[in-house]
Simulated assay, not measured.
Amino acid sequence: MSQEAVLAISKPTAERLSRLALLLEQQSEENTPITSAEIEVLTGWASHTIRKDISSLTKTSGIATNTGYLPCELAKAIRETLGFAGTEQNCCIVGLGRIGSAFLDYKGFAESPFTIRAGFDSNVNRVEILKADFPLYPTFKMKEIIPRLGISYAILTVPAEQAALAAERLIDCGITGIVNFTPVLLPAPPGVEIEQVSILDALGAIAARRSINTKE
């Protein structure tokens, strides 16, 4: 998959396709065909938008039958188009407080191409006490561990006052993607993607949509 082909896909389309791939992988146990209308019900996206997004894939042969899209084949085609099919996407958690530690037992990663390889926290006692299926380290070991494990993504859940410095250190370690659960808006330098996750923003968006739908 060429970098040019990936860049030709708009960011909203790429985000929808990535979410669709996860959804399809969760629905694909029997690989029963699914239509764009059924995807619309599950996602809330218009069926014509779904069909347009799928048409942007670099490979469309073999992903559909007369009765709908084949979940396994479509998910694979999406992964190939977005450039991470067949490769492990290694991640780490930075900040093992209440939010970060909740991810230690999260089973959703098993159904995705993303794998948590390590957790980091500045509190050494916390690192020693917490249990996880992957190793936990004090944050001063990030520079050593992140490159060694080939980690590209970080889930950032540190206290707000530590967010900016933690992000800088992660980028210095070679991290190219950060999911930011802190309330601090972090700037993304060239070559790095930062996704800001805010419960308040999500609630505000839902409230706005409800208000619009009520007026209609």
Rank of each mutant, 00 (worst) to 15 (best):
V127Q: 10
T58W: 14
L104T: 01
G119I: 04
T49G: 02
R126C: 07
S55Q: 08
A85I: 07
A85M: 11
P135N: 14
P71L: 05
F134K: 03
T115Q: 15
I129Q: 14
D105V: 10
Y137I: 10
A102N: 12
F114K: 07
G97I: 05
E73W: 08
T115N: 12
V127S: 12
N123M: 14
H48D: 09
K59D: 09
Y106C: 10
A75D: 00
L82T: 06
T65W: 01
L96I: 06
C92I: 05
W45M: 01
P71G: 14
L136Q: 02
K76A: 11
S55L: 09
A102G: 10
I50S: 00
C91D: 04
K131F: 12
D105N: 11
F134S: 04
K59N: 06
I50G: 00
F84V: 03
A64Y: 04
P135Y: 14
I116H: 08
K141Q: 13
A46V: 08
P138S: 11
T58D: 10
S61P: 05
T49E: 01
N66R: 04
F120S: 03
L96A: 05
T60F: 05
R79K: 07
H48C: 13
F134N: 02
T43Y: 03
G97D: 12
P71Q: 07
P135V: 06
F134V: 08
Y69T: 00
T67H: 06
W45V: 05
A118I: 10
T81Y: 03
L74Y: 05
S47Q: 12
N90Y: 09
M142R: 11
P113E: 14
L96Q: 04
F109I: 02
N66F: 06
N125G: 13
I50T: 01
L130G: 05
A118D: 01
G95K: 06
T115E: 12
G62W: 07
D53T: 03
T43W: 05
G119N: 01
T58L: 15
A64C: 09
A118H: 02
K107I: 07
I54H: 00
F134Y: 15
K52G: 01
T58E: 11
L70R: 00
I63N: 01
D121N: 09
L96P: 04
L136A: 06
G108C: 07
V124H: 14
R79L: 07
S47E: 09
T60Q: 09
E128Y: 15
F84M: 10
R51V: 06
S47Y: 09
Y137D: 05
I50V: 10
S122H: 14
K59A: 10
G100I: 11
P71D: 07
R51E: 02
N123G: 14
R98T: 06
G68N: 02
E111W: 13
T60A: 03
E111R: 13
E128K: 14
R126Y: 15
S55N: 11
T67G: 01
S56L: 14
K107S: 14
